[in-house]
Amino acid sequence: MLKLKGVSVQYGAYKAVRNVDIEVGKGEIVVLLGSNGAGKSTVFKTIGGLHKCTEGEIMFEGKRIDQSSPAQIVKTGIVQCAEGRKLFPRMTVYENLMMGAFIHRKQKKEIENTLHEVYELFPILKEKRNDLAGSLSGGQQQMLAIGRALMSKPKLMLLDEPSIGLAPIIVAQMFEVIKQINKTETTILLAEQNANAALHIAHKGYVLENGSIVVEGSSEELFADDNVRKAYLGA
């Protein structure tokens, strides 16, 4: 479904991502592991069109998307929950969700149905629909960011560190929700530092270090890999 072939991204003289190959199959949950500064967010931003790759190509459903604008990429069915959530803080929860449906703005009925599904997945968002997004707790903001992304009815969802800064109980809920979203035929590419929880729900994974992929394999293979166990699983 999504294929990155030899993707490199450079900021001035600094190469943030080097020759990265990633493949995400339809219906999969794929995790991208790596420490802070490994290049995970850069990879995500490049897929989303916020950065341009200096080398390589990105294909989605057989079409090249690496020259497309962020708005065009959202229209092809790739949506992203960025690190830091990027909500509209002085808009209400409801208004944020509605903005998530911006590309479907003419299909009022469909928007209603999707909104209903998002409220079912996150009842707290329905309860707080008239509150300002900026007044929500960290966990609620993360739910809103995911809910807003779902409003665009994505085929592929990029989740950048959804568990960062959240209480352990909320993190567990968040991963449960990601599994549920995946069951509704949404493919997921997940960037995480919480390797243990991520690998438990993922089908396969990649480890990114200093901008390059150093290990890749199925979740079982990554669990069994000594380097991964030492570096990310605390073994």
Partner: peptide, 20 residues
């Protein structure tokens, strides 16, 4: 609303497919 959204978070506006 997209204008307001963009003024509050430009990157967020990109993420939901608003042509900034």
């Amino acid at each position: 609303s997209a204008i307001i959204a963009m003024s509050q978070n430009r990157e967020g506006a990109h993420l939901v497919g608003i042509n900034t």
